[in-house]
Design a protein around this nucleic acid. Sequence first.
RNA 1: GGAGAGGUGGCAGAGUGGUCGAAUGCGCUCGACUUGAAAUCGAGUGUACGCAAGUACCGAGGGUUCGAAUCCCUCCCUCUCCGCCA
Length: 425
Amino acid sequence: MIDLRQLRENPDQFLARLNLRGDYSAPIREILALDQQQRQIEVERSQLQARSNEIGKQVGQKIKSAAKDDPEVQALRDQGNQIKAQLGELEPQEKAIKAQLEALALTIPNLPDPATPVGKSEEENVEIKRWGDEYLPAQAELPHWEIGERLGILNFERSVKIAQSRFVTLIGAGAALERALIQFMLDRQTAAGYTEISPPFLVNTASLTASGQLPKFAEESFKCDKDDLWLLPTAEVAINSLHRDEILEAESLPLHYCAYTPCFRREAGSYGRDTRGLIRLHQFDKVEMFKFVHPDTSGPEHESLLQNAEAILQALRLPYRVITLCTGDLGFSAVKTYDLEVWMPSQGKYREISSCSNCGDFQSRRGNVRFKEAGKKGTQFLHTLNGSGLAVGRTMAAILENYQQPDGMVKLPKALQPYLNREML
RNA sequence: GGAGAGGUGGCAGAGUGGUCGAAUGCGCUCGACUUGAAAUCGAGUGUACGCAAGUACCGAGGGUUCGAAUCCCUCCCUCUCCGCCA
């Protein structure tokens, strides 16, 4: 959620930064107007209520002093009724305006960080690092789905029978590899200080709204029609709501969590893209990292989050690069995002395998997660960060392609061998 | 799914129409006493908006009333028992 006070106090500066994402002038103008109306009505309403409270007290006193039938009592009652009538008009107005304001404000994305490069589309994302050139395979071979199907460890056709396209069934060593990767990543991230969470895989509307998936991106999630429940699109949603409506002690920060969950996405509007393989599925596994931090520390916390994600790729000896998303490609809730892209030999390019975002206080406003500093009065919104550590399906795809041998076999990265008790798939 | 009970401040728990943001206890903070601690005593201790006065919040929403934590309606959630079930 945007900070209405910040907008109100400095609308031009606010809009200038927001418009680095696209043109939000119209809704912002509307929000400012609604905000002003709302505040005006609120002043009027609370004055009437003060008067009404006073009348209520007076009536109570008169009645107590046995003057039940005092004509003054009737006069006060009449006044009370008058005020009630006025409030009866103001209150619905104020409520309607508040609801409108809230609904509109929830559709405004976060302001980009000054460090986020300005750009219109993913073309203008900035590469900041490459790692692992020495591990690039000598020549491009088969795409991972062919490798996997030859080995008999992935099956897409049968998944259509079971479900639909964009699902996979893992068999034998494939299933074991997935399990090993999950275990490996969780081992690494818990060793890095993240507390492991296993959250519900169904989440309610409030949780999706808090993290920013709703109201704007309802099309992207699967909904259970009969209940107020949706299939989890990412563990970020669940962990972000772990402390929803709480006031934490400053000393308890930072909180570092990680979680393995499946993720469910409708992938609406991506019909032609990545139709084969493990890259874009309706269901995939991910180990997610999530941090609740003091606002002063979110910058460094973001850097270390990135390092924790990179560490997995380095341990697996998978070549990758790091890019900073530009303002035009930045996700809805983020102020700054690093994407990790792993080398996919069959495609001859780097593909996203992790996204590490600093969301500032955007999600904590939406989820009302605050902290209190000893000695300071009032509360503050904390900062949240999230990052994949990593997407399991894409990691598996990258391993199959980067570790394929001339004979069609696939070697296992050294770090994984103990988990599977074997060297080759 | 059937039957019942209930949702009040960090926790426990009073309050069933009037000055109740809410008794009391516990917890917590500060102070006194003490060599130190415990015990004891004293003061304080929710959130949001507002410069303030003040307003709002006792699961959520609506209603009755001059006035609602308290009465009525709807919804949500939790707990107990039974049934079913991993």
